[in-house]
């Protein structure tokens, strides 16, 4: 099974009813690259991210993830949706971290991390539990495995969510505003874990408002507004010397 950790999107279009959220977006992320998507709210950046793992369907455009068409197969004059089984397999190779954590409240932290391997990959429970403990230690949550999400702080919950996604051994990690729902003093611990991942060569696409993180960690920054890519380029370059007026305006407001 190919899982080379690349994403290629060409002219992605997506509408909710008559509202066009994505108007022909291009995105290209190579293996091990960190791409940050920034932009004002409602610019379509979360929708773009959600399209990449099939939480939203796409209306038009090409989307290739891990070297193969995602969610659809090209046959003659159209793209045909794949069977749910195939979609689930493709999704299992992409980790997703949500703004609201979305941990399963009926499972402990360890249970959450084990859930993917045990329920989807049918990994032996013992093996999965050992791996879950390792991953929890990796995100700095040694000994918190028996706690329920409600007993953890927001920052801890988000780190469990990252461990849960990593447990599936994804080739790509998607982050949808992972620190936006956190109290300011808890943001740092989550970003630290994400930096760690970046250093270890994970392909990452991060929708974020943390410009410091984007500047320090990202290889490429994509500035979106109104469903189009306004500006893209080297992270430091775009954040320091934006070429487009709209980018400059946005950066002046958030920095």
């Amino acid at each position: 099974m190919k899982a080379d950790g690349t994403i290629v999107a060409r002219k992605l279009c997506k509408s909710f009813g008559s509202h066009q959220v994505l108007r022909g977006i291009d995105l290209s992320v190579s293996a091990g690259e960190i791409s940050c998507i920034i932009g004002p709210s409602g610019s379509g950046k979360s929708t773009l991210l959600r399209c990449i793992n099939g939480l939203e369907t796409i209306d038009r455009g090409v989307l290739r993830v891990n070297g193969e068409d995602f969610g659809y197969v090209e046959r003659e004059r159209a793209y045909h949706a794949v069977r749910p089984q195939v979609l689930a397999e493709q999704r299992a190779r992409i980790g997703m971290v949500f703004q609201q954590f979305n941990l399963f409240p009926n499972m402990t932290a360890e249970g959450n991390v084990m859930s993917g391997p045990v329920l989807v990959k049918k990994v032996d429970r013992k093996v999965a539990r050992d791996r879950a403990r390792e991953l929890l230690a990796q995100v700095g949550l040694d000994g918190c495995g028996h706690k329920y999400p409600a007993q953890l702080s927001g920052g801890q919950q988000q780190r469990v969510a990252i461990a849960r996604a990593l447990a599936m051994e994804p080739s790509i990690m998607l982050f949808d505003e992972p620190t936006s729902a956190l109290d300011p003093e808890l943001v740092g611990e989550v970003l630290a874990v994400m930096r760690d991942l970046a250093h270890n060569g994970m392909t990452m696409v991060v929708v974020t408002h943390e410009m410091g993180f984007a500047r320090d960690v990202a290889d490429e920054v994509l500035f979106m507004d109104g469903g189009v890519a306004v500006e893209r380029g080297d992270a430091r370059e775009v954040l320091a010397n934006p070429r487009e007026g709209r980018t400059r305006e946005f950066l002046e407001r958030v920095l």
Binding site: Y148, A150, P184, L186, E189, V193, G212
Partner: peptide
């Protein structure tokens, strides 16, 4: 049980053991 938030956990969450995690933002900004 799993959805109820124990009174103690809402305010005082003990720091996680293990690898210390940076909790300041200065280095990031």
């Amino acid at each position: 049980r799993s959805t109820r938030r124990p009174a103690a956990a809402t305010t005082a969450v003990e720091p996680a053991a293990g690898r210390p995690v940076s909790t300041t933002r200065e280095s990031l900004l």
